[in-house]
Simulated scan of single mutants.
Amino acid sequence: MKKVIYMLATVIMVACNASPQENQSQSNLEESSKDALFNEVMAIHDEVMPEMGRIFRLQKALKQVIDSLETQKVSASISVDSLKNIQADLKEADDAMMNWMRSNDFQFENMEEEEIMQELASEKEKIIVVKDKMLNSIEQAEKVLQKFEQP
Rank of each mutant, 00 (worst) to 15 (best):
A76G: 02
A76K: 06
S77P: 00
I78L: 14
S79M: 07
V80G: 08
D81M: 02
L83T: 01
L83A: 04
L83W: 01
K84T: 02
K84E: 12
N85D: 09
N85Y: 03
I86Y: 10
Q87T: 07
A88I: 00
A88N: 12
D89M: 05
D89Y: 07
D89A: 10
L90M: 09
K91S: 13
K91D: 08
K91I: 02
A93C: 03
A93P: 08
D94R: 07
D94P: 00
D94L: 09
D94F: 05
D95W: 06
D95K: 13
D95T: 06
D95H: 10
D95P: 01
M97F: 13
M97S: 08
M97I: 09
M98K: 13
M98Y: 08
N99E: 14
N99T: 09
N99L: 00
W100A: 07
W100P: 01
W100I: 00
W100G: 04
M101T: 09
M101L: 08
R102W: 00
R102S: 09
R102P: 00
R102A: 09
R102F: 13
N104D: 07
N104P: 03
N104R: 08
D105Y: 07
D105H: 10
F106G: 10
F106V: 01
F106E: 06
Q107I: 03
Q107V: 07
Q107G: 06
Q107N: 15
Q107R: 15
F108Y: 15
F108C: 12
F108G: 11
E109I: 02
E109C: 00
N110A: 13
N110I: 00
N110R: 11
N110T: 04
M111L: 13
E112H: 09
E115A: 14
E115S: 12
I116D: 07
M117F: 08
M117Y: 08
Q118H: 14
Q118N: 11
E119Y: 11
E119W: 10
E119V: 08
E119Q: 11
L120I: 05
L120S: 08
A121S: 15
A121C: 02
A121L: 12
E123Y: 11
E123S: 12
E123D: 15
K124V: 01
E125M: 00
K126T: 01
K126G: 01
I128P: 01
I128E: 10
V129T: 11
V129R: 04
V129W: 02
V130W: 09
K133R: 11
K133G: 06
K133P: 03
K133S: 14
K133N: 15
L135W: 02
N136Q: 10
S137M: 12
S137L: 10
I138T: 07
E139H: 14
E139R: 11
Q140C: 00
Q140Y: 11
A141H: 04
A141S: 13
E142F: 05
E142D: 10
E142Q: 15
K143F: 12
K143W: 05
L145V: 07
L145K: 02
L145H: 06
